[in-house]
Design a protein around this nucleic acid. Structure first.
Lengths: 145, 145
DNA sequence: GTCGCTGCAAAGTATTTGCATAGCC
DNA sequence: GGCTATGCAAATACTTTGCAGCGAC
């Protein structure tokens, strides 16, 4: 199941002259198993369980690598620790200002028009995503401010 | 000119039982004079020039206060220090992955549809903005990666 | 055997907290 | 005069860097 992810990673690594190490495979596997948003800290905890001894710098380096390879994406949260999205395709997010939860959203927007607008400012757009801020169902019910 | 900002702030503060202090006014004034994106550090530097002795905790507290009052907004950058936008109305941003520059954009999107989409997930949307990632004109010309 | 990756430690950057004092209302 | 905001200092959180040794290729 998640073996596909590792194979793809191994191929990508080899073709760029990189190395396939157990640490990288373990982190990629964990990424593949999650369908949500994770912090470097969470990855560190999860990878330590199955491959003790992995260090934070390695986690950060691998996350950066996976981002470059397009396997994960950074979620623009506006504050707090960097969040990585294990879903790499273009989609959007809702961020609750009550509990800080980040929820996936497929927003009804025209990315082509968006990219065109960016181009007219001389900007070479690579990806675009919407960030909606507000209150999630739970926090709204709890009547947060 | 920027006196308006301070008056509005003073009124808002008084009506919520807050205090109108020189520190808050100075920071509000600086915000009013800038039309770009600033870090807490930059505000600290600018405010220190005209009102020496202001401390970082005060800067952070005041920025948070101004955010609550809707005078400034946080820019979801995805990494690095928190950026505040001195333009409080709903608009969007392009972030250059080469130089990290943040550029304003008024994206052609239908916020009503966006909010409706969020609602259908039980999310109470308050604001929405698009984050476009890519290369700015300068970095694209320099042929970054 | 080579060169990239890892682990360790440490530093660097960004932000928040606790508490006594000052000053706005 | 009461109560909030400030300043200072320190702590905390997060991320990056430098370097020596290991291990993938």
């Amino acid at each position: 199941m998640s073996g596909i992810v590792e194979t793809a990673l191994a191929d990508a690594l080899r073709s760029r002259g990189g190395r396939v190490t157990p640490q990288r495979l373990a982190i990629a596997r964990i990424i593949g198993e999650r369908d949500a948003h994770v912090t470097a800290e969470e990855i560190f905890g999860a990878v330590t369980e199955r491959l003790p001894g992995v260090s934070m710098p390695t986690v950060y380096a691998t996350l950066e690598l996976l981002e470059e390879l397009g396997h994960i994406a950074r979620v623009p949260t506006g504050s707090g620790p960097v969040l990585f999205d294990t879903r790499a395709d273009q989609h959007d997010h809702m961020i609750c200002r009550g509990c800080g939860d980040v929820i996936d959203l497929d927003a009804p927007i025209n990315r082509r028009r968006l990219f065109a607008a960016a181009s007219s400012h001389g900007f070479s757009a690579e990806c675009a995503q919407v960030v909606v801020q507000g209150l999630c169902a739970t926090c709204a019910a709890t009547n947060q401010r």
